[in-house]
Design a binder for these strands. Structure first.
Lengths: 221, 221
DNA sequence: CCACACATACTTACCGGTTAGTAAGGGCCA
DNA sequence: TGGCCCTTACTAACCGGTAAGTATGTGTGG
């Protein structure tokens, strides 16, 4: 009151700032130890408060987890800006994971944990997979359509039968699966797996197989 | 004492039988709830004893976990008998997972959980990945060699440059990753993913890309 | 065939520690 | 002064692990 410096001197974090601090800490803790193995005390002492202080902001541990997931999702789409389509989406996905090991670990741990019975993150993860599957299928559709159109324009003799939604969904699931599975291997043994290279290889392989299926009626079997 | 029925009436399970009962129950519990979220009481009451009885047989919760992993591994290789090589290995791997959802869940949960800091199952899972990677790389080697030899014999003009171990390891990692990642998606939403079909598709795609790489110097980039 | 010695399998009881969540009050800031 | 942030203090539950006692065997010597 006496002077104006109180305004910016020791700005006690506003509610929103404090919440972000807690969310950031919780992301770190949940990511490194998993949800069940983490405690509110772990999270709280990283922010410099007590675990009751955390509960003051988020009510319960489950609610904090969901807030963390939403928080990460919000960050992700902020970094994404204008959603890339087609091949750019895959380039983006490959690069995204290399940036920070912590983020990869958080996703891998929480995703793996979510398949346990009645896990609070299960609905969120399920929904995330569905969205991701749809986005990737859409990107694949763009690539396949462009490729088929190019082949047709070039006057190829192959019949451009196109490709159904089921095949695209299948390919999208395979892409997501390869990415997630490789992340786990990489986290456990970084020296044994080159994450970026192997992920790119797997995606290219699936993409090539999908394109092949778009031209021929059926590849093999 | 008065009669002889005491001898065979309630034949208390032998040590080996009891241990198997506990291991089976622990597999079920750890698989459905994860390791950290499970308690020895959970396991014990499925066998009809107390948690101290479980500790009598296995010493500690960590040792029980490791015993469960070894137990499952032993069952797996018993079912495998003479190790199949080449394409048979992949057929086996695809079919293995469809048999029982519980087993898939146990592997998925424990594998995902193992990437947390200092998890007791981490060394075991890491070693399992290494072994699996080597086995699959070997199977791929057989397939590629056979294919290249056939192409050469057919007098193709393509240069059969063969393929290096690094490429095989990369492909093997991709195969394992796709399998594991698809299992997680399937566990979370069985209606959204056809596990067998999508896994087969992914493996075929990676196999085709590997074979393509064995003929041409480099596919794309 | 039996009695005794011993080992095994388990139970009951308890320990120290940790958990999420609640209640109430203190202190800072407008 | 009044409201918000957070701490202190606490509860009830649960955890893995230990210790000690008990029932159920099983092997052995007479």
């Amino acid at each position: 009151m006496t002077d104006a410096q109180t305004r910016t001197r020791t700005p006690r974090p506003s509610r929103a700032e404090r919440r972000e601090e807690i969310l950031s800490a919780a992301t770190r803790v949940f990511g490194s130890k998993g949800y069940h193995a983490s405690s509110l005390v772990d999270v709280a002492e990283q922010v410099g408060i007590t675990h009751a202080g955390v509960l003051h902001h988020f009510g319960s541990k489950d609610k904090l987890l969901l807030a963390v997931l939403e928080y990460r999702h919000r960050i992700d789409i902020e970094h994404l800006e204008g959603k890339p389509g087609g091949l750019d989406l895959f380039r983006h996905l490959v690069n995204l994971n290399i940036e920070r090991r912590g983020i990869v670990q958080a996703y891998a741990v929480l995703t793996g944990e979510s398949v346990t019975d009645g896990h609070p993150a299960a609905p969120w993860v399920r929904n995330r997979f569905a969205t991701l599957r749809a986005d990737i299928a859409q990107a694949l559709r763009e690539i396949v359509d462009a490729e088929v159109a190019a082949a047709r324009e070039a006057g190829e003799d192959a019949e451009p039968v196109g490709i159904g939604d089921a095949e695209l969904d299948r390919a999208a699931s395979a892409v997501i699966g390869a990415m997630d599975g490789l992340q786990v291997q990489w986290l456990l043994d970084p020296a044994a797996v080159d994450l970026a290279e192997t992920t790119a290889f797997a995606i290219e392989a699936i993409l090539a197989a999908t394109l092949a299926g778009a031209r021929r009626p059926r590849p093999l079997d």
